[in-house]
């Protein structure tokens, strides 16, 4: 049973990878761009899943960390001519430090209270960007003229080139996040989600893990911001509004909170469905909303509430034998 789910997951990832690799052969530039968008949202949703799905911390201001990463990359690139991909670590660190600082005083809040605070956080960041904070962010116009990424001396500019860059990053992220899930760190986040009092009472430093969840989730959102800035070459505050945070929250809950493949499916559906419903013209968001409601009523646990078992029966048997 356990072995079968692992195999199924591997087959699913292999098929998805094959589809992405072959996509430029049968999709036009428009749909390739949709796929790029899907990739960025998959990254953002996975990073939010660390905070919301794994640690159970209701964060509805995730776009703030995405924005911090994107602006860090844009500022370093346009002002100091640092190649855009070289700014990835800086975006990750700045977003993580920012998240740790702002989360520190509020992270002990539970559920709905934290949700309200993070909504406020997202708005503060957006408004600060609009008001050209420190004279660095370019106000409502944003920052333009961000240079194209170079990979091994090759300039990335066309949709199918970005497709490979973004989805390679997705592949690495999925691998790393599965490793995280299967570790002492990942378990600690789950203990926190299931029962913070029992987690602390079992010896888990819950305050520390809350902050780490925020910092790590923000770091990944920050790096996604860099990729976004590189792809668009122009960024402005309107790309990081409240709606972005809501959509990311939706992807995690809809796909299956805490499940990596589930969150990927959630992100794909939330980006692709409105495109598919273009036939309904102005009613497309209505249809999309209805689909969403029906799914939440019929499957409240999410579409793919599937988690890899950390231990299989064979592991337990082996552990029992070695002791």
């Amino acid at each position: 049973m356990a072995a079968r789910t692992t195999t199924r997951l591997a087959v699913g990832y292999a098929l998805a990878a094959a589809f992405i690799v072959a996509a430029p052969r049968f999709l036009d530039a428009y749909w390739l761009d949709v796929l790029n968008s899907v990739g960025l949202y998959v990254l953002l949703a996975l990073s939010l899943n660390l905070i919301l799905g794994d640690a159970g911390l209701f964060n509805m201001g995730h776009a703030a960390f995405y924005a911090v990463g994107a602006y860090t990359a844009a500022i370093l690139n346009t002002r100091y001519q640092i190649p855009i991909l070289w700014t990835l670590p800086a975006s990750a660190v700045v977003a993580a430090v920012f998240a740790a600082l702002v989360a520190r005083p509020v992270v002990h809040l539970r559920g709905d209270y934290l949700l309200v605070v993070t909504i406020g956080l997202g708005e503060i960041v957006r408004i600060a960007l609009v008001n050209d904070v420190f004279g660095l962010t370019g106000g409502a116009n944003g920052i333009f003229g961000i240079s194209r990424p170079m990979v091994f001396g090759y300039k990335i500019r066309r949709p199918h080139e970005f497709l490979y860059l973004i989805w390679a990053f997705v592949a690495v992220t999925v691998l790393l996040f599965h490793r995280l899930e299967q570790s002492r760190f990942g378990r600690a986040l789950n203990y926190l989600r299931e029962d913070p009092v029992a987690a602390e009472g079992s010896g888990v430093n819950t305050a520390r893990y809350r902050l780490l969840a925020f910092a790590l989730g923000a770091a990944w959102a920050g790096m996604t911001g860099t990729l976004y800035a590189a792809k668009m070459t122009i960024i402005s505050p309107e790309s990081f509004g409240f709606w972005e945070s809501v959509v990311l929250f939706l992807m995690v809950i809809l796909g299956g909170s805490g499940s990596i493949p589930g969150v990927i499916v959630g992100a794909v559906l939330v980006v692709v469905l409105p495109e598919v419903f273009r036939g309904f013209a102005s009613a497309r968001m209505l249809v999309f909303g209805l689909v969403m409601m029906v799914m939440m009523v019929v499957r409240p646990q999410g579409l793919l509430p599937f988690r890899l078992l950390r231990f299989k029966e064979s592991d337990v048997r082996r552990a029992g034998a070695s002791s």
Partner: peptide, 12 residues
């Protein structure tokens, strides 16, 4: 948990 020590980096 409190008798082991590998963290996020170790997990990755």
């Amino acid at each position: 948990h409190c008798r082991t020590r590998s963290g996020a980096l170790g997990a990755l």
